[in-house]
């Protein structure tokens, strides 16, 4: 493995640069763009905001080949979107232009309009943020934030939490299987399920907590509390286009908020 020969610099499996449109962009730039999209979706009144943002996000996702991921997000957001539509359709206070009447229920046009707008806004917001994590590895994001000065403690907390969640779920799954093998009923009626929670949650919680002491000492044994900036072995690229885009996004956010505050956006 020539690339891992000592003295040749960092091996390739460490530097592992992401590739592909938008995926290779700098993580902080992607964050800034997402912030701009979120602000645009909420601060720009009426339809232009959410629709423009949705268009931009969908186009970027398509170019980065992440449309399927967005589809999953859309699915996950469907219950709340449905709720929003239903509630506003039937219950928008002060609405007086009914579409039809079904006895006491009277869906209104303004309700439908408002509901669709709110749903679009919500979806734009979720999609903009989803795009960031669909095109960025958590490692890269944290490494980039570290380069910009985020402390090692914060990096550790976020990085370790993200790694720990799947592992805790696995452990919870093992405990569920073990309990089922002992005859615990996990499907039954409400009270049975409620009672079944303690034998499930307790081992997960206590198992995780008892490890804290060992993990603390292991970290200290690796000089975790040393002062000063830590060395970063891998940093995502930050090229000129990344920087330009980032600053443009930040300025655009300021501009939009300013215009809205000054009442110029109507």
């Amino acid at each position: 493995m020539a690339s891992s020969a000592p003295g040749a610099g960092l091996p390739e499996y460490v530097t592992r640069r992401a590739g592909g449109f938008y995926r290779s962009a700098n993580p902080s730039t992607k964050l800034a763009i997402a912030a701009l999209e979120v602000v645009a979706a909420f601060v720009v009144p009426g339809w232009p905001g959410p629709l423009l943002v949705l268009g931009a996000v969908l186009a970027t996702a398509a170019a980065a080949r992440r449309l399927r991921g967005l589809g999953v997000i859309a699915l996950a957001a469907s219950p709340i979107v449905g709720s929003i539509l239903l509630v506003n359709l039937f219950l928008l206070p002060g609405a007086s232009d009914p579409i039809a009447r079904f006895g006491p229920l009277a869906p209104t046009w303004s309700g439908l309009w408002f509901g669709l707008q709110t749903a679009a806004r919500l979806f734009a917001f979720s999609a903009a943020i989803a795009l960031v994590y669909l095109t960025t590895a958590v490692d890269d994001l944290l490494a980039d934030l570290a380069r910009r000065g985020l402390g090692r403690r914060a990096i550790f907390v976020v990085g370790a939490a993200v790694q720990m969640v799947p592992r805790t779920i696995e452990r919870a799954g093992e405990i569920v299987d073990a309990q089922r093998a002992r005859g615990m009923d996990t499907e039954g009626r409400f009270w049975q399920r409620a009672r079944g929670i303690v034998p499930l949650a307790a081992p997960v919680v206590f198992g995780a907590l008892t490890e804290v002491e060992e993990r603390t000492m292991a970290l200290d044994a690796r000089a975790f509390s040393a002062p000063g900036r830590q060395t970063l072995l891998r940093v995502p690229a930050d090229r000129a286009p990344d920087r330009v885009l980032r600053w443009a996004a930040v300025l655009a956010v300021v501009a939009i908020v300013g215009l809205r505050v000054a009442g110029r956006l109507g």
Partner: peptide, 22 residues
Amino acid sequence: TQLSNTTATVFEEVGFGPCNLG
């Protein structure tokens, strides 16, 4: 429990200590 849980390769894991020292 001695893993830092923040690295993706053994190389980076072994480098965790020296990196902490800056």
